[in-house]
Simulated assay, not measured.
Amino acid sequence: RVGEVYNVGGHNEMRNIDIVKLICKELGKPESLIHHVTDRKGHDRRYAIDPTKIHNELGWLPETKFADGIKKTIQWYLDHEDWWQPIISGEYQNYYQKMYGDRG
């Protein structure tokens, strides 16, 4: 309905650390790479979206399970290094500074 807000989720509440461990496993990396940091104010330890409303009102259900979706997402990033490499190389930051840096 126009003006309504719908939460889209898959009824699969997970702790952040469990998602990080899943990513490490999928990449074949050891969990020893995980470094815990001091929590910031308002830090989210987990994300829990209740999609009941979208299901009840619109009949929407997820087509992809989280475990399958995260694997597909990881594979996409592995297959598209040309998309993310400029972001971590500093090239994106340089472009951003050039285009928007003097707008105070």
Score class of each variant (00 low, 15 high):
Arg1Lys: 08
Gly3Lys: 07
Gly3Trp: 01
Glu4Cys: 12
Val5Asn: 08
Tyr6Leu: 04
Val8Cys: 10
Gly9Val: 00
Gly10Arg: 08
His11Gln: 07
Asn12Cys: 11
Asn12Ile: 01
Asn12Phe: 01
Met14Pro: 06
Arg15Ser: 06
Ile19Lys: 14
Ile19Val: 15
Val20Cys: 06
Lys21Ser: 03
Leu22Lys: 11
Leu22Asn: 05
Leu22Asp: 06
Lys25Gln: 12
Glu26Cys: 06
Leu27Gln: 05
Leu27Arg: 13
Pro30Tyr: 02
Pro30Glu: 02
Pro30Ser: 09
Glu31Asp: 15
Glu31Ile: 09
Glu31Ser: 15
Ser32Arg: 09
Ser32Gln: 05
Leu33Ser: 10
Leu33Ile: 15
Ile34Phe: 08
His36Ala: 07
Val37Ile: 06
Thr38Ala: 09
Arg40Trp: 03
Arg40Lys: 14
Lys41Gly: 05
Lys41Gln: 09
Gly42Lys: 00
Tyr47Met: 12
Ala48Glu: 12
Ala48Ser: 15
Ile49Val: 15
Ile49Trp: 06
Asp50His: 06
Thr52Ile: 01
Thr52Trp: 00
Thr52Phe: 00
Ile54Val: 14
Ile54Arg: 05
His55Leu: 02
His55Met: 13
His55Asp: 07
Asn56Gln: 15
Asn56Leu: 14
Glu57Thr: 07
Glu57Arg: 05
Trp60His: 03
Trp60Asn: 02
Trp60Phe: 10
Leu61Ile: 11
Pro62Met: 02
Pro62Asn: 07
Glu63Ala: 14
Thr64Asn: 11
Lys65Gln: 14
Lys65Pro: 11
Ala67Leu: 14
Ala67Val: 15
Ala67Lys: 13
Ala67Asn: 13
Asp68Pro: 01
Asp68Leu: 08
Gly69Val: 07
Ile70Trp: 05
Lys72His: 02
Thr73Gln: 09
Thr73Asn: 12
Thr73Phe: 14
Ile74Trp: 13
Ile74Ala: 08
Ile74Val: 15
Ile74Asn: 08
Gln75Lys: 11
Trp76Asn: 04
Trp76His: 14
Tyr77Pro: 12
Tyr77Lys: 04
Leu78Arg: 13
Leu78Pro: 03
Asp82Leu: 03
Trp83Ser: 03
Trp83Arg: 01
Trp84Ala: 00
Trp84Tyr: 05
Gln85Tyr: 06
Pro86Phe: 01
Pro86His: 02
Ile87Ala: 08
Ile88Tyr: 05
Ser89Glu: 03
Glu91Asn: 04
Tyr92Trp: 10
Tyr92His: 06
Gln93Asn: 10
Tyr96Phe: 15
Gln97Pro: 00
Lys98Arg: 11
Met99Ala: 13
Met99Trp: 02
Met99Pro: 00
Met99Glu: 14
Tyr100Ile: 01
Tyr100Thr: 00
Asp102Ala: 09
Asp102Glu: 05
Arg103Thr: 09
Arg103Val: 14
Gly104Asn: 11
